[in-house]
């Protein structure tokens, strides 16, 4: 039968694990946004020295499993002298991964802004970077935010994979507790509930952000 007492007893451990999951998610989100934006702009660049590395990065990430990417960073890199430790390996792996998906999302948003906007900006003497920052990106944002939010929710769930590289986040917390309690059903259900709380909170937050960007800047 489902043992509620054991869940209540170990609840503080779950909170600690969930907080670490949240921390990893937020850090990966931030870096994932930066990686995504840089890769998107590079992919749109006419300069092949910028474009090809970005194309390669996005292709590589999207055509390999996240688990293998994490293993390469955590187990592989130390062999060539780069030892980031479990936490930063996890954040880097997740950020690189979500960054590649963000890159495609952001690129799609940018190219959906009519070219006349770029021409109007350039005809007023704006350089490419200024036109991108002040004219194109703010308009692209409206299109980018919903799918970006989706990437973020997927990212929260993907953080469970860093349990395999010894980061004691929510999933590994549950696994370790199973080791001492032999109650896999309770522990995994509890982990699942907390993941659902995290992803649903993120979704609600994103809906709010979406609404705000829509009312703040009215568009034709």
């Amino acid at each position: 039968m489902f043992d509620w007492n054991i869940i209540i007893h170990y609840f503080p451990f779950f909170v600690t694990g969930a907080l670490l999951t949240l921390k990893i998610s937020i850090l990966s989100l931030l870096f994932g946004l930066i990686f995504g934006l840089i890769a998107a702009l590079c992919k749109l660049s006419i300069n092949p020295l910028l474009r090809w590395p970005a194309v390669f990065y996005v292709w590589l990430i999207r055509s390999t499993p996240l688990l293998v990417q994490l293993f390469i960073i955590y187990f592989g890199l130390p062999q060539i002298g780069i030892d980031l430790g479990p936490f930063f390996s996890g954040v880097l792996g997740l950020a690189l991964n979500v960054g590649a998906y963000n890159a495609e999302t952001i690129r799609g948003g940018i190219i959906s802004v009519p070219y006349g906007q770029t021409e109007a900006a350039r005809s007023l003497g704006m350089n490419g970077a200024l036109a991108m920052r002040r004219i194109i990106l703010p308009q692209a944002l409206r299109i980018i935010i919903p799918p970006l939010g989706n990437n973020f929710v997927i990212l929260i769930k993907d953080t469970s994979l860093v349990s395999t590289i010894t980061v004691v986040e929510l999933t590994l917390t549950a696994q370790r507790l199973i080791g001492s309690t032999y109650k896999p059903f309770e522990m995994y259900v509890m982990a699942a509930v907390l993941y659902a709380v995290l992803t649903s909170s993120a979704s609600l937050l994103l809906t709010w952000v979406e609404k705000r960007t829509r009312t703040e800047a009215r568009r034709s």
Binding site: P114, G116, Q117, E119, A120, A121, R122, S123, L124, G125, M126, N127, I135, P138, Q139, A217, R218, R219, S220
Partner: peptide, 24 residues
Amino acid sequence: FESHLNRIRCEVGMVFQQFNLFPH
């Protein structure tokens, strides 16, 4: 050339058929 062009474009105004106002 890029900065030369931007200076020139400050001196040459253009109005388009489709207006191209910044909607945001």
